[in-house]
Structure formats: structure tokens, C-alpha cells
Design a protein around this nucleic acid. Structure first.
Length: 575
DNA sequence: GTAGGGTTAG
């Protein structure tokens, strides 16, 4: 059977032959200009087909100017052509102009189609104007302007999911079912992805079960989202089960599936495992791309193995894959972590040379590196600069900035900057408070630290284990061991469980300010709770405990509580 | 409709 036989009879095949004659924009425009001069004029349908092709090439501005030419010609355009125009404006981020076209459709006496509304909704969503999309959608239903179809629901749901309103999206799913519109696998996938991004993977899995029960088959997109969600929560076994389930359903993994797994391994510090996944990927005929290489580079950067990271970078260039800003951000971050600010600056210069735009992450990493190098003046200058070029700082930028100021003994500046940030209408999060509490505690301002701690609580924020540890450390360093221990009890009551860091902080406090008996007591508690003594506490222990006290009782505890490798390497000199 | 980068505690 030929292609021609597959086409519905109403579509003239000639127009399809016409549009196959070009494969670039110039040819298409040339053809358009020839068509518009023809006498008699070709059917509108031919123009519609031609413009559809131009839109497929993402040449929205061109498409709009051609439609304008049509409007000033003898040809009467229809609602369908207007839809193309609205669609172009929505892709150009100018949906208000799209609404103007909509107005002219109505004025010309054409009836807007459901697809017209779908396109308008999509335009609003693309511009992040989800609330307006919601209002328009409700209007369509309430005033019975048109019956929403699958695409209408999908578009609004997409907006809701992107805007972080998964809950409303799920409600819309139920609503569309009630109205007798069967959700497709695409709609389910969207919500499953949104749930996974909210870390609500169990709810996502429930929805997977539900869709299967309703005979809607999940596809590779559905599984990719679930695998990513599970990996993000460290639920490796279940992620593996998902891959096996895909296999049972005869759904083959695609490049994204491999990239998700590669990235998950890299984030766990298992770059070698990630590399073997890449080998499998290549064997299965999927080509590693910029995302794959960037994940590996990031993996090495996170481990501070810059030489390895650069090797992968070179291999990527060799493979003729263009690095992008994300690739460079990883390298900058890696150099900054290794306190190699010069290396980071070279990468930063390379970004500019390649005419790439630094992002908020680029600047956040650079700020981190500059503060780490003790160059707080340069850091503050860069902070000014990023804002002057229109890059808006986010919470991570602020926490790097406040932390950097504190670590460079400029706590007062950090505190006043913090107040400025709040006055600018930004609601501080727990991380910002934590950074400041830690900074105060380490710079002899325990009182201010305690004030900040109660302030964050009164704001309705919940301190996390890092916040508590910073506070407990502050108390311990000033000798308030009992108060520190009380805080450990309190955090547990509040549902935040102390971790190994908490116990080691208290241990070091007890070692500095309490008796040997107290130390033994605390060590026993650590043992009971299954926490071990880490390296810095261990060295402090060896220095603080007089040799006469290092009896068999003590040694037994040490053997139990101190990791083997620490004992082997460092315990010899003591004897 | 699905994948990539940045911060805080000993």
C-alpha cells in the first residue's frame, strides 16, 4: 500500500506533493510567494498545509508574517489558520497577541474551535500563567462555551503539574473521568511524573496500578518518571524491579532511561557503575549524549576527581558532542569544592568564550569558591554583577552567600543582609536559618544563634537535623553540655532523629567539659543506639583520655565503636 | 508527558 492510499479522500494529494518539495525554510517561503501570486489562487488548504510545515520547523515569526500576508490578500482565512497564528504566538511567549487573534476570529464571525481554546490554554501555561489558564478553563465549563476534549484536560493538567499543583491535577483527572473523557497514558504519565517530583513515589505507584487496572498501558515515559523517582529516594531495588517490569511488558528502555540510571549512580558516587551502564547503553544502540557525559563529569566532580572529569570532558569533545552550561557548571563546582578557584575561573571564562549564558547555579558555585578562597570582596562584587545582568539569586545563592560571609568572620554583614533579604519579601527557609545559626555559634554569638532558632520556629518552619546539630554544637562549645543533651531529647520529641553527627558533637563536648565517667556513659549510649565514633572524635578521645584510664573496658568499647580502618591506622602510636 | 548543574551540621 502506498502513502497516497492511506490518505483520506478529502485531502487533495497534490498539496502533499507540493509541501514535500522543500526541506528548508527558504524553499518554503519561496513556495509560499509563488502560491500567493498564482491565478487562480490555490485553495486555503494548501496554505494551511504549508504553514503547518513551517510551524513544525519552529519558525514561528516567519509563519506569522506569512499569515499576515495572507490576510492582506484575496484569500479568506478560516479559524484553523487563526489557530496556527495563536499557536505561533504561544510559542513566542506572546499569548496576549494570541488572544487578540482570538478576538478577531470572533469578530469575523467564525466559531472558535475547541482546539482554539486548547491553544490559548497552552499559551498561558507556557508563560507560567497557570492561574489564568485555570480561570479560562472553568469559564469554558461553566458557560458551556465548548466541551473540553482530551487535549484541553491534558493542557490544563500540564500547567497545574508544572506549577507544582499536583493535587489539583489529580482532581482534574477525576473530573475528566466523571465527564466521560478517558484519560490516556499520556495524562497518567504526566501526573505520575509530577507525583514523583513531589517525592510522593508511593502515590505514583498506586496510580500506575490504577491505570493498568483500567487497561491503560504505561509506556517508556511512565517508567522513566518512576525509575527517576525511585532512584531519587534511594529505593534502588524497586527501581530495578521497574526495569524488569518494563522488560516483561516488552517496553524497551530509551536513551533517557539510561541517562536516568547513569545519573542516579553518579549522584551516589558510583561513577564506575555508571560507566558500565553507559557501555550497556552503547551495546543497545543508544548513543550517549550531552546529558550522559555531563552526568559522568558531575559524578567525578562531586568526588573531587577533576582529572577524571576533564578526561570525560575531552572524550565528549572527541565524540563531537557540544558541552552546554550544565556541563561547565559541574566543572566549576568541582574546582570550587577542591578550593581551586583559578581552575573555576578558567572554566567561567570558557563559558563566556563559547557565548553560553551563566545560570544562577554557575554564579552560586563561583560565589562558593570565592568565599572558600577567602575572597569575600570579590564574591560580593560577583553577587552584585549577577543581579546587574538579570540573574536572580535563589535560596541556594543566598545560603552560599550567608555561609561565606560567616565563614569569613563577617557575621554581622550576614545578619544584616539576611534582614534585607526578608525585607525584600523573600520568606527565608530552614537552610538560611541553619547557616546563620551555625555562623553565630562559631563566632561567639551563641545568644543570637538561640534567638534565630526560636525565630525560625515561630515562623512555623521546622528545624531539621542539620539545624539541631548546629545549635547543639554551639551549646557544647560553650560548655552547656546538659542544655545540649536536653536539645537532643527535644529534637527526638519533635520527630527529628539525631544522627551520628549529633552524637559525635555531644561526645566531643563531653570530652572537653565532663568527666571520664560521663564519656563512658555517652559511649555506651552511642553503642546502644548503633552509632560509631568518627575520625575527629576518635583523635580527640585518644588525646583526652589518660593512658591509665584506657583499661580493657575502654578498649572493648573502642573496638566496638570505632571503624576498623581508623583503629588499624592510628591506634598503634598510643600504646 | 519523561533525564542533566548549585547550599547548611561534627
Amino acid at each position: 500500500m502506498t502513502t497516497t492510499q492511506l490518505l483520506p479522500k478529502s485531502i487533495p494529494t497534490r498539496s502533499n506533493q507540493i509541501i514535500k518539495r522543500f526541506n528548508n525554510l527558504e524553499d518554503a517561503v519561496y513556495l509560499f510567494n509563488r502560491m500567493i501570486r498564482k491565478k487562480p489562487l490555490p485553495l486555503l488548504l494548501n496554505f494551511t498545509n504549508l504553514l503547518t510545515e513551517i510551524v513544525k520547523m519552529k519558525r514561528y515569526t516567519t509563519a506569522i508574517s506569512l499569515i499576515n500576508k495572507l490576510l492582506s490578500s484575496q484569500i479568506t482565512v478560516d479559524a484553523c489558520m487563526m489557530n496556527i497564528a495563536i499557536n505561533c504566538y504561544s510559542h513566542l511567549g506572546q499569548i496576549d497577541l494570541g488572544f487578540a487573534v482570538y478576538g478577531s476570529i470572533v469578530k469575523l464571525g467564525h466559531k472558535p474551535l475547541t482546539s482554539t481554546y486548547n491553544t490559548l490554554l497552552k499559551g498561558l501555561v507556557l508563560e507560567g500563567r497557570v492561574l489564568e489558564a485555570e480561570i479560562l478553563f472553568k469559564k469554558l465549563i461553566k458557560r458551556k462555551i465548548c466541551e473540553p476534549n482530551e487535549v484541553t484536560y491534558g493542557t490544563v493538567m500540564n500547567g497545574l503539574c508544572k506549577g507544582g499543583n499536583t493535587k489539583m491535577s489529580v482532581r482534574l483527572l477525576r473530573f475528566m473521568e466523571e465527564r466521560g473523557c478517558k484519560p490516556s497514558e499520556q495524562v497518567y504519565s504526566m501526573i505520575i511524573d509530577s507525583l514523583c517530583k513531589d517525592r510522593r513515589v508511593d502515590d505514583a505507584l498506586k496510580l500506575l496500578t490504577e491505570m493498568v487496572e483500567k487497561r491503560v498501558l504505561p509506556n517508556v515515559v511512565t517508567y522513566n518518571s518512576l525509575i527517576d523517582g525511585l532512584c531519587g529516594l534511594g529505593r534502588w531495588d524497586e527501581a530495578k524491579q521497574m526495569v524488569l517490569e518494563m522488560d516483561r511488558r516488552k517496553i524497551s528502555p530509551d536513551a533517557r532511561t539510561f541517562n536516568i540510571i547513569v545519573d542516579a549512580f553518579c549522584k551516589e558516587g558510583m561513577v564506575e557503575d555508571a560507566r558500565s551502564v553507559v557501555s550497556v547503553m552503547v551495546e543497545r544502540g543508544e548513543k550517549p549524549d550531552v546529558v550522559t557525559y555531563s552526568a559522568l563529569i558531575d559524578g567525578y566532580c562531586l568526588r573531587g576527581q577533576m582529572k577524571e572529569a576533564v578526561k570525560v570532558f575531552d572524550a565528549m569533545v572527541e565524540d563531537r558532542i557540544e558541552p552546554n552550561i550544565v556541563t561547565f557548571n559541574s566543572l566549576i563546582n568541582g574546582y570550587c569544592k577542591r578550593s581551586n578557584i583559578d581552575g573555576a575561573m578558567k572554566v567561567f571564562a570558557e563559558i563566556t568564550r563559547r557565548k553560553l549564558e551563566p545560570t544562577v547555579s554557575t554564579y552560586s558555585s563561583m560565589l562558593y569558591g570565592l568565599f572558600k578562597a577567602g575572597r569575600s570582596i570579590d564574591a560580593l562584587k560577583l553577587f552584585e554583577h549577577m543581579q546587574s545582568v538579570g540573574v536572580t539569586p535563589n535560596f541556594i545563592t543566598y545560603s552560599v552567600l550567608l555561609d561565606g560571609l560567616c565563614k569569613n568572620r563577617r557575621v554581622n554583614e550576614a545578619l544584616s543582609l539576611f534582614r534585607i533579604i526578608i525585607n525584600n519579601g523573600i520568606h527565608p527557609n530552614v537552610a538560611l536559618y541553619t547557616v546563620l545559626i551555625d555562623g553565630c555559634c562559631k563566632n561567639g554569638k551563641l545568644g543570637v544563634g538561640l534567638d534565630l532558632f526560636s525565630e525560625l520556629c515561630s515562623r512555623g518552619l521546622r528545624p531539621n537535623v542539620v539545624t539541631y546539630n548546629a545549635m547543639i554544637n554551639g551549646l557544647c562549645n560553650q560548655g552547656f553540655i546538659e542544655e545540649a543533651k536536653e536539645l537532643v531529647v527535644k529534637m527526638e520529641k519533635n520527630g527529628v532523629f539525631p544522627n551520628g553527627v549529633t552524637y559525635n558533637i555531644v561526645l566531643q563536648g563531653v570530652l572537653k567539659f565532663k568527666t571520664f565517667e560521663d564519656v563512658l556513659l555517652h559511649l555506651k549510649e552511642m553503642d546502644a543506639r548503633g552509632f560509631s565514633v568518627d575520625a575527629s572524635s576518635f583523635y580527640l578521645l585518644l588525646r583526652s583520655i589518660p593512658e591509665k584510664e584506657q583499661d580493657s573496658n575502654f578498649t572493648d568499647l573502642m573496638i566496638k565503636l570505632v571503624p576498623q580502618d581508623l583503629l588499624k591506622s592510628k591506634s598503634q602510636p598510643v600504646k
